[in-house]
Amino acid sequence: MLESQLVMREDDFTRIQTVIERLTRDANAKGIYIVDKAGQLIAEAGEMQGIDSTSLASLTAGCIAATGGLAKIVGEEEFPIHFHQGQRDNLHITLVGERMILVVVFDERSSLGLVRLRVKKAGAELARIFEDVKKKSEADAAASGSPFAEITDDDIDNLFSD
């Protein structure tokens, strides 16, 4: 298998959701997204429901990957904090743990200082949760707890039947 698969259980998902919903309030954010470095959207919160969050996730991962490449060129391990300032909305992007990215979208109702402050605490909390998730994923893989062991070739063929 490749890099360890990420399996998110319902209880962990709820824990993450609780943290990012609280962060939305504490930081006066418009929207919060958790994205993994491969470009998958993991969780989202805030008032921006309905925006193209799948694309947001993929582009965020691309952006983090590109600046990570830049960091290595100038001799840094990575750039853990990114800030994009717009006319109305701003993006604050931070790395969380080894493979997650926390994106905060905010406007004039908040400020960079407040977002930074709140992200610092929430980021540490999220990093702990993702560490748990990782451990559980690895334990599951070792104990062959994946439900997909029972997928049959027919199940797979059925996806492509039309």
Partner: peptide, 15 residues
Amino acid sequence: MSFINYSSREINCKI
């Protein structure tokens, strides 16, 4: 690295 989400019951894969 596929991502399996039990909460939204989704499997995400990258090709």
